[in-house]
Amino acid sequence: MTTTTEQPPTMTEGAVPVEGPGAAAAREVPTPVARMWRGRPALSPGALKGDTVWHALIPVAILSLVILIAPVLAPYGATEVNPVGPLASPSPDAWFGTDEIGRDVFSRILIGIRTSWFAALGVILLGTIIGGLIGAIAGAFGGKVDMVLMRVTDLFLSLPAPVLAIAVIAAMGPSLRNTLIALSIVWWPWYARIVRGEVRALAARPHAEAAKLAGVSRTRLVLKHLLPGAAAPVIVTMSLDVGNLILALAGLSFIGLGAPPPAPELGAMSARGLQYLFGHPWVPIAPAAAVALLALAANLLGDAINRRLDQRTTR
């Protein structure tokens, strides 16, 4: 790696002669031995700015922003009635037609997409925080703490997810908030497992041992030397999960376990419009297509992030 034109020093030459300040002074600040490294190599310029895993999330942020502001394009409010009348066919005045009360389906879908998207992100974020915390503690402490936390996690994993979600909502009453809580309860254990596995694996690697030897505190070790290594796999799982959650949310709302009626929820819209499937198919099909499209977009994004982070973590 050096480009020096000089004869490299040979081993039998032994040490370079000591110069400059005495040994005691040298103990304070190491003496420069730059002399030995004439022709120091330059570092490759691009390599210095290692991009972080967080850059992979930029597309998610952009899509979220678009979804957030999309409802300004909606010509009507979620519960506003389009003057073209109920069950009108798609037309320039009502792009996706109107439903049985005369509400504008296009407007309701734009608003419904926003709810679904941010609800899915919310559940994932909550699941990651709870699961990440439990996984990090289990992985960092090991031993009994690890065993207890992981058995609890296994317990949650062994519960049938849809049934648990339905039970929680049935007990607390259907509302969007309760649906999110129910889904978070069944979602976090996966993240606990991933984070715990990554932290354990990283803790066994030489860099963790070296940091320990350098005198890094335990908290700092976990936060700075172990958890960042779990970020890539967690982000990949998160991004691939958004699609699943959108579908799960739509499913629960389809069977009536989402926000109560006037709210523009895609699953519920589709369910209630089902009776008009023949004759006015846009009423149930348009929101269903929106769910499919949103889930597809989420999965494509997840795949892209997966591929990008995979490349990055190949060391």
């Binding site: 020093p9 000591v18 040298a26 030995m36």
Partner: peptide, 11 residues
């Protein structure tokens, strides 16, 4: 060489 040097200068 570096190791030798460190040994001699920094004990």
């Amino acid at each position: 060489n570096l190791l030798c040097h460190l040994r001699e200068t920094l004990n």
